[in-house]
C-alpha cells in the first residue's frame, strides 16, 4: 500500500490560509489502512480546523467527506457538488489523490494534508516499513523475495557492502542490512548458489530516471469504431 502521514496542523492551517469554506476529502483506500487520511482522520482534521479557527476568532466552515478512491475519476464525480461549494479542498489522499482532484476539478484550489512517504506494509500495528521503490523492473526473483533496491540504503545489486555490521546498515543501526536478510533467507532455503551470479548494472530507465512513467493497455481501452 501507499503509506503516508499527516502534516502538522500548523502547516495545514497555512496551506488553507484565509479560505472560509473548506472541504476535507479523505480517501478510503491506502491512507485509510495506514490511518493517515481515512474517514476518521478526515473528521478529526475537520474538527481540529473548526476548533483552531474559532479560537483564533475567524471561524471557518469545515466539512469532510471520504471517497472510496481519490485516484479515480468515477469516485470524484460523486463529490463534485460539494467541491463546487467550497473555497479550498484539503485532500487527505496521497500525492496521486491530490493531483487527481486538481486535474478533475480545474477551477478548484486543492492543498495536501498528508506527506506521502513510501510503498510498504505494516510490520506490526502502528509500524510501517518501506518495501518497494517502484523501479519498474522487478528483481525479487533473484534475491529470495527481499528487495535490495528499496531496502538496501545504497540499492546495491551485489551486496553486502563494507558498511554491513552485525546484520545492520551503517546508515542507521535500526535498518536491517537487506543483503544480510537476502543471504540468510537464501541460506535457509538452500539456494545460496543464486548469489554466485554477478548482477550487471541495472537499467534505471524503467525507474524515475526515464522520466514520468505511463502504461497503456490496448486490450483494456474502451473500444472505438474500427
Amino acid at each position: 500500500m501507499i503509506v503516508a502521514e499527516q502534516k502538522s496542523l500548523d502547516e495545514i492551517k497555512q496551506l488553507v490560509g484565509r479560505a472560509q469554506k473548506v472541504l476535507v476529502v479523505g480517501c478510503g483506500t491506502c491512507v485509510t489502512v495506514c490511518f493517515a487520511g481515512g474517514a476518521r482522520e478526515a473528521a478529526i482534521v475537520a474538527a481540529e480546523l473548526r476548533m483552531a479557527s474559532k479560537l483564533e476568532g475567524a471561524p471557518k466552515e469545515v466539512t469532510d467527506v471520504t471517497v472510496q478512491r481519490q485516484c479515480e475519476w468515477e469516485y470524484l464525480d460523486q463529490i463534485a457538488e460539494q467541491v463546487g461549494q467550497v473555497d479550498v479542498v484539503l485532500s487527505l489522499g496521497c500525492g496521486v489523490g491530490v493531483q487527481a482532484i486538481a486535474e478533475h476539478f480545474p477551477n478548484t484550489w486543492v492543498v495536501p494534508g498528508l506527506n506521502t512517504k513510501f510503498m510498504g506494509l505494516p510490520t506490526e500495528q502502528g509500524v510501517w516499513e518501506e518495501r518497494c521503490a517502484g523501479c519498474g523492473d522487478c528483481l525479487l526473483g533473484l534475491t529470495g523475495g527481499i528487495c535490495p533496491i528499496a531496502r538496501c540504503s545504497k540499492s546495491l545489486l551485489n551486496g553486502p557492502c563494507g558498511g554491513s555490521l552485525n546484520g545492520h546498515c551503517e546508515v542507521n543501526e535500526e535498518i536491517p542490512c537487506a543483503w544480510q536478510l537476502i543471504y540468510d533467507r537464501l541460506k535457509s532455503m538452500g539456494k545460496l548458489e543464486v548469489l554466485m551470479d554477478i548482477q550487471p548494472p541495472k537499467n534505471w530507465c524503467t525507474a524515475r530516471d526515464g522520466g514520468p512513467r505511463k502504461i497503456v493497455r490496448e486490450d483494456l481501452r474502451l473500444a472505438t469504431e474500427e
Binding site: S8, L9, E48, M51, A52, L55
Partner: peptide, 8 residues
C-alpha cells in the same frame, strides 16, 4: 497532543 496544536 492534538489539543496543544489546536490551541486548547
Amino acid at each position: 497532543q492534538l489539543l496543544k496544536q489546536i490551541g486548547l
